[in-house]
Nucleic acid binder design. Structure first.
Lengths: 141, 141
DNA sequence: GAAAATACCGATTGGTTCTATCGGAATTTC
DNA sequence: GAAATTCCGATAGAACCAATCGGTATTTTC
């Protein structure tokens, strides 16, 4: 019932890319350092994200990754589906679709998707910027 | 991110107990047959449910299990926590609690708990009875 | 043109968890 | 006493996770 590190790290990496914005590509090494992750492991996450068209890669020295779309056009749910497959609280048993237990699973899934599909990378960037601003003001007044 | 069969079967079994109500104890064999599960596997789920005080057991022939409380006093979330541990969409990294990504995980978790903690076994029984009633009417009119 | 940086690729591995299965002991009913 | 049932502990195969490793291809920089 818990997200694996694949989805977790993947979203964190996408958040870093969104924060970096259009300042050229950001390397996996840089992301790995900022988030304290293994660079080699991140490679495994970058591959599906690129194949799914969520990021563009730039090879060679000074290369790295950039978001393939505007940050407000990429939701957290979309990233997770690429890395983890369908978002589903429990596999729905097609043999008894009318069982009230199944409908609980469906409702939980829907409520998870509500949050994940309505949150974009831009929302995360905005929250982070707001946090830094208020923090800075707090100490500089 | 997906519920394991432990939680899934466990809730289905608790639902059967709730449906059975106060007509004496219901054996694991009966539950296994109705739900198409392995009886031996159900035993492993029954043990923690009993230790957590959610069911009472009756040993010996004609024995089985009963809910330890009224069905409207047992939520689906409670059953899942006994069988699967804390309900949490992703482990929150205590090193960076203010990261916007962490707050997404918290919001998803909260929204899952909203559904799971507000749904009782009695709600499931009610839904099942309503379904049978309407189904019967549909064919008997 | 050489060297460094980086993305890209595939294999493997150790660990954990899942999903049971098995055999038997204790308890109660009939 | 026989049958039904809970109870207990061990085990085992499978799948998945998380990560590591070694190497190749591409691009920039010097």
């Amino acid at each position: 019932m818990r997200l694996s590190t694949k989805g977790k790290y993947g979203v964190q990496a996408m958040f870093e890319l969104a924060m970096h914005g259009k300042n050229g590509p950001l390397s996996l090494k840089a992301i790995a350092e900022r988030q304290g992750l293994s660079e080699h492991y991140l490679e495994q996450l970058a591959a599906p994200l690129r194949k799914a068209g969520l990021v563009h890669s730039v090879r060679g020295a000074q290369g790295g990754y950039q978001l393939a779309r505007a940050a407000n056009q990429i939701t957290v749910g979309e990233v997770l589906r690429v890395l983890e497959g369908p978002i589903e609280f429990a596999e729905v048993d097609s043999a008894k679709p009318d069982c009230p237990v199944q409908s609980v699973w469906s409702r939980v899934t829907a409520s998870m998707c509500d949050v994940l599909d309505s949150t974009t990378l831009a929302d995360l960037v905005e929250a982070e910027l707001a946090r830094n601003t208020s923090g800075t003001l707090f100490f500089e007044i």
